[in-house]
């Protein structure tokens, strides 16, 4: 289930530089899954064979599988463990995860679990991803999360993730938001923070995201804006 429609918006050019594999990583609860699903939908507009791989070994809830219907409708392949959202509380990986590196005809988005713990999963895929060398590794940041309130702590979390992944980030997604209380001002107030993270890491901000209604207000005021159609998660769909 998605709220709103972002089909009128174009994906920022900076966010899709033609790489075959896009890895989405970041702090726990920074918004990775929402972004991964939205990116997959956008990639599908320009690529024939798109897949999203849910490689989250941290969280048994809030998975790409929540958006299964949308992905199916858009013709996007979902690579996910059969145990995701099954309440079987084990860090299982999908049996077809090697399609990500084996099938070079796929445009892939990898939704990786939060923090350094989540990034450990890349151990298996890293050699093939590095050898092919056709990837982006994007860091999702949110200034309003309590453990990444400033650029310095954000960079610390980023370095922990890089250490666990044994790979380096290539760009930043500024997803600073306050959930349902997000306003245009919430996003605007986060721009200096994101710019400072960018300066400290020498990484480009490939896009700034905002929920679709907020994004409409921000149109023209924020560079490389990417509107998100928010995916309802497992719990929100119940209440």
């Amino acid at each position: 289930m998605s709220e709103g429609d972002n089909s009128a918006f174009r994906i920022p050019h900076s966010a899709f530089r033609g790489k075959r594999v896009t890895l989405i990583l970041g702090h726990y609860g920074s918004g990775k899954t929402n972004i991964a699903v939205n990116l997959a939908v956008k990639y599908r507009e320009v690529a024939e064979k798109v897949a999203i791989a849910d490689l989250d070994i941290v969280n048994p809830y809030f998975r790409t599988k929540d958006s299964m219907d949308l992905l199916k409708e858009k013709g996007i392949r979902l690579i996910v463990s059969e145990y995701a959202n099954s309440n079987v509380d084990i860090p299982a990986l999908p049996q077809d995860m090697y399609a990500v590196t084996d099938d070079k005809s796929l445009t892939c988005i990898l939704d990786i679990g939060g923090d350094d713990r989540g990034a450990l999963v890349l151990g298996r895929l890293r050699p093939a991803i590095l050898e092919e060398d056709d990837y982006e590794m994007l860091l999702v940041i949110n200034m309003y999360r309590p453990l990444t309130p400033d650029p310095e702590s954000t960079v610390e979390v980023m370095r922990e993730i890089e250490l666990a992944a044994n790979m380096r980030f290539t760009g930043i997604i500024n997803n600073s938001n306050l959930g349902r209380e997000t306003t245009a001002e919430t996003v605007l107030a986060s721009l200096p923070y994101a710019e400072e993270v960018s300066r400290l890491t020498s990484l480009p901000i490939v896009m700034t995201t905002a929920e679709i209604h907020v994004a409409k207000e921000l149109d023209g005021r924020v560079k490389d804006l990417f509107p998100l159609a928010l995916q309802k998660n497992f719990i929100e769909s119940k209440i």
Binding site: G29, N142, M143, Y144, R145, P146, P149, L178, G179, E181
Partner: peptide, 16 residues
């Protein structure tokens, strides 16, 4: 830190 932060309930317990 901003006036408000976006937290999971479990994180709110820990921080509080």
């Amino acid at each position: 830190m901003a006036d408000k932060v976006l937290m999971k309930g479990n994180e709110a317990i820990a921080e509080a």
